[in-house]
Each structure stands twice: as C-alpha cells, then as structure tokens.
Amino acid sequence: MGSLIGELDERRAAVRARVEELEGEIAVLTARLEAERSRLERLTVTRETLEELAAEGVAVDVDAPVVQEPVNEGQVVGVQTVVAWREGMSSADLPPVYRDIVDVIDDAPGPVQAKQVVPRIGLPVRTSKIEGTRGKLKRLVERGWLAEATPGLFAPSARRAPNDTAD
C-alpha cells in the first residue's frame, strides 16, 4: 500500500509543478496581452485624432519626417495615472476621464457594460471607443475603484460606497 501512496504523491507533485509552470506562462502572456492592448489603444486614438484634425481642415503632412525628442530618464509623457483606491478617496482623486467613468457607474441603477458607459461620458459609440473604455474600466477594477462580478458588467466596488466624498 505504501508504494501506491508514494506513486500518487509523485504524480501529484509532478502535476502541481506543471500547474505552477502554466500559471507562470499565463502571467507572462497576460502582461504581453495588456501591453499590446495598450499599444492598440494608443494607435487607435492617434488615428482618430488625425481624422479629427483632417475633418477640421488642419493639414497633416504624413510624409514629414518624424522627429523624436529625447525624454528625460524617468519622465513619463501622456500617461494618466490611476491610483489605487484607499479609504477616504473620492472620484475627484482620478484623472477626468476616469472620474467621469466612476461617476457614471456610481449613478447607474445596476451593473453596466462598457458600451453603455461610452455615450454617457460623451464619446461616440464606436468599437474603438468601447474597447478603450473597457480597458479603462478594467484598470479601475484592478485599482479597487470598481468591481466586475460578471465578465463585462461593472459596478461600484464593495470596498467603497458609490459617490464617496473625501472630508
């Protein structure tokens, strides 16, 4: 009987090691996926900005050489920082677009989807805007501002009361 238990323990240890290995691979792939989603969002916004400029009659010279100005070490350009929620914080502590999203979610009668948030924050209902907003919603979930009990449905986090105000 001892050899059977020993065999089971060996198999269990091997499977446990494989599970840990796969979890590590998933973490790496998840980080790569987030980086690519971020890149896709930036490219989409850039294209939309160029289209808006063209629609306004601003001449956009696509053949002009691209000049990259050096950025100081540690200096971040064009990034909105979403801080993790802590006791006493309110949506006023967020960058404007994130504040608008949290306020819309707080005012909703129940969980909402990204496509329901987009028009309420003043964006046109287009796939690129919905996906960009979904990314922001996911970021707010990661930082504790919102909850996603069901995939794709966002609600205020149970840790904070909707419309929290700092004293």
Rank of each mutant, 00 (worst) to 15 (best):
83 V>H: 05
30 T>L: 10
102 V>S: 01
113 Q>A: 14
13 A>T: 12
71 V>P: 03
162 P>L: 01
86 R>Y: 06
152 G>N: 05
10 E>R: 15
55 A>Y: 00
88 G>I: 08
129 K>F: 14
95 P>R: 05
127 T>K: 12
68 Q>P: 02
75 Q>W: 07
4 L>N: 09
78 G>F: 00
27 A>P: 02
26 I>E: 11
63 D>Q: 11
98 Y>C: 10
82 V>D: 00
124 P>Y: 04
81 T>K: 12
22 L>H: 08
109 P>A: 12
158 A>S: 15
142 E>S: 13
52 E>K: 07
153 L>Y: 14
56 E>F: 00
39 R>Y: 10
67 V>S: 05
33 L>V: 12
123 L>I: 06
135 G>E: 08
4 L>G: 03
126 R>S: 09
139 R>Q: 08
5 I>F: 11
145 W>P: 02
40 L>D: 10
62 V>M: 08
105 I>W: 00
22 L>E: 10
70 P>V: 05
84 A>L: 04
36 E>Q: 14
153 L>P: 00
64 A>H: 03
161 A>I: 06
127 T>H: 09
125 V>R: 13
86 R>A: 14
135 G>N: 13
123 L>D: 01
7 E>W: 08
43 L>M: 14
91 S>M: 04
141 V>Y: 06
85 W>M: 03
101 I>R: 01
133 T>C: 15
71 V>M: 07
97 V>A: 09
145 W>F: 07
2 G>V: 02
18 R>N: 08
89 M>Y: 09
150 T>E: 15
